[in-house]
Simulated scan of single mutants.
Amino acid sequence: MGYSRFDPATHGRAPWNIGKTVGTKRPLTQKQIWAIRFFLDREGRLRDRALFDLAIDSKLRGCDLVKIKIGDLVAGPEIRTRAIVVQQKTGRPVQFEPTSDVRASLLAWLERRGGTINDHAFPSRVDQAHHMSTRQYARLVDEWVSAIGLRRQEYGTHSLRRTKASMIYKATGNLRAVQILLGHTKIENTVRYLGVDIEDPLVLAERTEI
């Protein structure tokens, strides 16, 4: 049930979504990814570059991303070529493979950050013993997209989660693979998440000649 126009308590109260863009957040394009990377490198924001790169590559939800520990990312002195994280929402593990550029930015940040394998990779600015909050992560994403001229109302933390998944789907049309990479329990969730409609499989069919 929503607010009723007959309820006096709601008179004069602004709708929660006034001035906000409601719905699926847009994924980033390759050009936008590199624009954000250039901005972060120019500003010398080593932590933010590592966080951004990991968000794109891992395709994790914000609540899982901020809780990653150093031990999840490193094996000895090196960044893992394959990492596994148990999702908070589903309790199921999901794997991802950081690319060489992402491993380099993570290594640069962790060398500066220091700490042990039991410490969070991205600590809270308030209490170093705790991880960065999802609210702080969301604020950073707003700042990054605004810095390259995008409207923050159209982008968010899920934009980073959707970016690589959307690229993989467009390149392969393989929904099952994307479902596994995102850690979705049902393929219907992946269809909704990517915004796939009937035209997409039809386009793939038209491109296939027999």
Rank of each mutant, 00 (worst) to 15 (best):
N17D: 15
Q30P: 05
Y137G: 00
D48F: 12
I187C: 11
H131R: 10
N118R: 13
R161S: 08
G115A: 11
V203C: 00
A50K: 12
R161Y: 09
T21N: 14
G115W: 10
I70N: 01
H120G: 01
A171R: 15
I210S: 07
S146A: 13
R135A: 08
D72Q: 02
A177Q: 14
A14P: 05
H120W: 07
M1P: 08
S100T: 14
C63H: 08
R13W: 06
A83I: 09
V94W: 02
A14F: 12
R162D: 07
R92V: 02
G173S: 08
P123G: 08
T99Y: 13
W109V: 01
Q32I: 01
S159V: 07
T163F: 06
D41W: 05
R92S: 06
K67E: 01
Q88M: 05
H131F: 07
N174Q: 10
R37G: 09
L175W: 12
R139K: 12
Y193E: 08
F6V: 14
T116Y: 05
Q179W: 09
E199M: 14
R13A: 08
I79N: 03
K20R: 15
R176N: 07
I198V: 12
R82M: 01
K59M: 14
G156W: 05
T185S: 15
K164Y: 11
L181H: 10
K186F: 12
G114D: 08
L150A: 06
K59T: 09
C63I: 13
A83K: 00
Q153E: 15
V86Q: 07
R80I: 01
G19P: 10
S133Q: 06
G12R: 14
E143Q: 13
